[in-house]
Amino acid sequence: MFSASVFFLSFVASFFPLRAIAQQKGASAPAVVQPGAPGQPTKTLPASTTGTLPPLSRADVEFMQGMIMHHAQAVEMTALIPSHTNNKDLQELGARISSSQSDEIRFMKRWLAARGQPISMAMPGMPDMDMSGKPMPLMPGMLTPEQMEALRKVKGAEFDRLFLTGMIQHHGGALTMVKDLFNSAGAGQDAEIFNFATDADNTQRAEIRIMQNMLEKKSSEEKQ
């Protein structure tokens, strides 16, 4: 199951005090066991055992904070479409990217908020600086201020081309971020971030293919 487009914090209220439904009855209490590695014996755990999880990793938090910044630029880019091009295919694609990335930004904010983590890597009140006071680095694939300015300045077919090449670069960066996440020690062990990153990877891979095809189609049309 789970890919995670509109992913909601599984806010399952295990804290509900009400234990209304069936409690275990019968002669013997349930066994709580933990198998060992293949060939090794299984351990019996105390009946009072409750669930535990691996610690959250810094790479997880930074991935989410960085991806919010990364996604925000995609939304900013797609917001240019209505005023910059009449290309229907691009408008449709832009609407899809904008809605899925906005959804995902909300998910990432929820994920961070529920864990008591800041939503941004920036120094509070200083959005252009990181916590150590240095200028905020761009996430992989993000367009430079110069590239963004160039995109804002053009219209029509030239906008389409710059948008597509820019967004392919941008999405490619997201794939790099996912790869880096899973290549960091102890990262991606949280079920929600695992699902989210897996889904983001699948979705952005697909959108890159779509955009590459649109570019190829455009260039072959222009040749004719």
């Binding site: 933990q34 198998p35 060992g36 590695a37 090794q40 669930g51 535990t52 999880l53 691996p54 610690p55 959250l56 990793s57 810094r58 790479a59 960091s184 020690a185 102890g186 990262a187 062990q189």
Partner: peptide
Amino acid sequence: DCGTEGFPPE
């Protein structure tokens, strides 16, 4: 080994 501790983060 079915451990719950996962792997240590950086």
